[in-house]
Design a protein around this nucleic acid. Sequence first.
DNA 1: GATGAATGAGCGTTCATTCAT
DNA 2: GATGAATGAACGCTCATTCAT
Lengths: 205, 205, 205, 205
Amino acid sequence: MGKVQRKEREFHMRRAAILAEAEKIFSAKGFHKVTVAQIAAASGFSTGFLYQFFEGKEHLYTAMVSEKLDMMYDTIYREVKAAGNTKDKISVLIESHLCFVEENMDFCRIFLRGEGDTLSGVMTEIRRKLLEDYLRQLSFVEKLLKEGVKEGVIRALPPREMAGVLIHMIRAASVRWLMVPSEGSLTSQKRFIEDIFLNGVKKNE
Amino acid sequence: MGKVQRKEREFHMRRAAILAEAEKIFSAKGFHKVTVAQIAAASGFSTGFLYQFFEGKEHLYTAMVSEKLDMMYDTIYREVKAAGNTKDKISVLIESHLCFVEENMDFCRIFLRGEGDTLSGVMTEIRRKLLEDYLRQLSFVEKLLKEGVKEGVIRALPPREMAGVLIHMIRAASVRWLMVPSEGSLTSQKRFIEDIFLNGVKKNE
Amino acid sequence: MGKVQRKEREFHMRRAAILAEAEKIFSAKGFHKVTVAQIAAASGFSTGFLYQFFEGKEHLYTAMVSEKLDMMYDTIYREVKAAGNTKDKISVLIESHLCFVEENMDFCRIFLRGEGDTLSGVMTEIRRKLLEDYLRQLSFVEKLLKEGVKEGVIRALPPREMAGVLIHMIRAASVRWLMVPSEGSLTSQKRFIEDIFLNGVKKNE
Amino acid sequence: MGKVQRKEREFHMRRAAILAEAEKIFSAKGFHKVTVAQIAAASGFSTGFLYQFFEGKEHLYTAMVSEKLDMMYDTIYREVKAAGNTKDKISVLIESHLCFVEENMDFCRIFLRGEGDTLSGVMTEIRRKLLEDYLRQLSFVEKLLKEGVKEGVIRALPPREMAGVLIHMIRAASVRWLMVPSEGSLTSQKRFIEDIFLNGVKKNE
DNA sequence: GATGAATGAGCGTTCATTCAT
DNA sequence: GATGAATGAACGCTCATTCAT
């Protein structure tokens, strides 16, 4: 009988629903200004019931950030891998990243706010995860660029540093777009980032 | 009579002393983990007395961050202005920025932690300030690069976007250095940033 | 038709099973540290089902203590009644009591722990029961001693007070044995209690 | 200047006032049914202020019980030591004990209730203290009786056991008096306890 | 009959802020 | 001016109880 499966399905749907509400609320107000009761109310559950899904407020927050980030990285990595040569991969990397930010503004604003504080045990994990994700991405891009060097399309600069630069050029555009209630779409910045990253700003006389 | 002036002088010295202690403590523990009593104790004043200088904990925090940042930007702008041509200015901009981060690790880590949350009215101000500072810096660098374009040393790309890229390349290096208990000094990254910003990563044919 | 009887029989078996588990768990952890869910799980029933047998957690607790005590007193009274003369009866009273404590350590420790608090209506009942039981025992022993007086083997002291003394001499030994992870069996104290109760401690010169 | 002393004096008076109120309330309702707010209100202070005197609810409770017991034992020991021969000492021991119970009914009722549960760290201490106090009292009385044996007024029975019996004969009377809203003063029981303890209940020949 | 998912009241504790001295 | 004693609002979490199935 599929009763167990139905239960499980329901469990995950509810969990997802809670996380979705949590994302909205945390994104809007920040971890400390949100009460468990608010998330419960928004989710349409009682406070106590949330504890069936998450061990506590911090776990809930952690899960929400963590899973959202996993989603982002998964998408990016998958799309990059599907691309052809190194230049295409770089292009896709940039676009995919910007795309996620554009579609998840509120969530991303969490990182402008930071919120990483209160390193009270559970929260520390999120920091570790953030760092790990960052380093993994760094390595991923590094490998990408190394191949570019091998292919002869990229200068033989320190690859990890180059990776750092590329990643933060992307973040740069994202941050500006998030901070300044700005003009135009974020993805429209892709060409520009690509251009500067590849060619620099110096005019070859 | 200079009594009023003496009072004022004393006021500012005390205020500065409090901010100095606040910086240490907030940097080390984060906004939420610090109590007003701790700052008072470290400053050698009573809790109540702090309220003569700041309207509340958040104002104190805001003031501390704000003034520290002003200091940073003032230094950078001053040094950049003192430099010669555009390339030198870019060079100094990078170096000056990295230098500040290197010398104020704990303070800068505040921004990794975020802490910007609690947008409860007062805190929002800090966000606005952060944004303003950012935009001002963007404009400053934009102007710099525009001159570079005029001088013919820089390609005629959208200057504001270029400025964003440069600033975030600097921030990129800073963030990595702060996050990863890494190897080597931060300032040693200067040449590298300069190189990529000016020349890009693409190997010319 | 015996259907009703079967139902009833089943009801009582289940009730007894729950009480048996409850005794173990409450004895080990104390009223406040035990959750209804734990007892339900241990009994192999659902939480909701327990409420078919008991009105609530306190009632369950009360019932368990109450019935266990009834059991104890029943045993003691039966054994005493079966004994021959007054001295034997006293001897059996002591032994039977100590025996129960020895065999039900965990349960008895409940009374060291107290647990009688929370006099929230229902719990008060247990207090009343405790008192009633105590008074009944007092009367029982009183009657015993009165006969002893009549028989001329016991001094004509106030019988109720004597009864109190005897009961508490027994409790004294029990409490000490429960509190101090002590040496030797509890029942070995019987002769001693008997001796002092009958002869006092004064050396007849 | 006696300012510090005045402060200290005030501190102790307030602490004592809180403990006095706490005693009343805890005695009446039991640890779990009392809220910090109630004690605060009864003491005329705000909840937060109580935490200047005690680390938390449990510490407050522990302190109250502990200090009250110390008071009791101090009084008893002092009075016993001041008495003349062994028989007088025994007499004083009984009287002093009964007297305390009579004058501190509500407090003593705590031990009928037990309350020893919730052995959550701090509470465990109270158990340890209770045990220690008990053992110390046991030793105290034991020594007393040993001297009695040496003096030839007491039979050479195991002194520790005898001590246990005496203590619990006293407690017996106390418990009965506390449980049964009874007739007559508790101290009137002294002669009786003394008599039975010394002479037993057996009618000679 | 049995279940167990769902509820939501209840409480200890912290700490920014005030104000009498 | 300076103090620091006193305040009390605010919140995460547990778990006995209920009731739809």
